[in-house]
Write a protein that binds this DNA or RNA. Sequence first.
DNA 1: ATCCTAAAGGGAAATCATTTCGTTTTGCGC
DNA 2: GCGCAAAACGAAATGATTTCCCTTTAGGAT
Lengths: 147, 147
Amino acid sequence: MNRHNPDFSSILKELGLKETPKRRAILEILAAEPGFLSPEELWRTLKARFATIGLPTVYRNLGELADGGVISTIIHPNRHLYYYFCTRVNGHHHHFICTSCRRVEDIPECSVSAMEGEIIARNGGAITSHIVQLNGLCSDCLAGVTE
Amino acid sequence: MNRHNPDFSSILKELGLKETPKRRAILEILAAEPGFLSPEELWRTLKARFATIGLPTVYRNLGELADGGVISTIIHPNRHLYYYFCTRVNGHHHHFICTSCRRVEDIPECSVSAMEGEIIARNGGAITSHIVQLNGLCSDCLAGVTE
DNA sequence: ATCCTAAAGGGAAATCATTTCGTTTTGCGC
DNA sequence: GCGCAAAACGAAATGATTTCCCTTTAGGAT
Ligand SMILES: [Mn+2]
Ligand SMILES: [Mn+2]
Ligand SMILES: [Zn+2]
Ligand SMILES: [Zn+2]
């Protein structure tokens, strides 16, 4: 039930998604991966396990799982899609991504929620969502650079 | 020199960009716009002023100006490009965007910089940049919805 | 165990925002 | 004014992502 042993059956059931071999494989691969993956990279890994699997299947599943909050998207300067296994049910949090090795680390505290109140008080309106992502070098990559 | 009367000549000179009529028009249109624009929308406006202007010219200029920090990009769920006039020289800050009318408002305080220190202390590594964007409804759109 | 049906997958093709390319024009320092 | 690098043109290419239509499958009901 932790990051490397989540209960995929329950997760999919709650989302109303059928538990198919490919869907499960997508979750397994993502959950085992310390960094974010592109749909195409995931597809290459999947093709080693399945005789036939289409790229549209990968896109479709990633989209559904992201909508369901089981995986999260990464914002990349190249504006391509990247996904990371991180369920929303772990509570609201954000991510630090290493631009060198792609590793993703959780940032448990959310800096925005604390100030939402005063922002609304000042500007009016309503905040429905927010995006926070820290980019940089993880400790390993930083050590490699400065070594 | 405020938002609606910036010194485009100086800005472009500092960036080492020539002051062409089209480049100036792009800045003027963006600076007069309260919300974010797509390259294509900007192009349509520009075509009213110039007999010929290519979409690649718009993309190229937007890219250069964003690289130079004169305009900033908006993160949109549809993953298309949107730009907003907001110079980096105004100091580090972030934006609240109205998902209904596209209005952009500055958020002067940065919630992330305060916590960067402890994040690094905990995880190691180095933070090189961060993304923060608040999405919601501006006061006008909220009033319209609830009226 | 078999049926049934909506959901899922396959694969080829389309989409279309964005970029590239080769050529022509233009800003601007001298 | 000259010269040249930067800028703009426009047609064409690119390629990540989506659409389409047909086939297969998961899983609840009989
Ligand atoms: Mn996470
Ligand atoms: Mn701003
Ligand atoms: Zn948050
Ligand atoms: Zn900030």
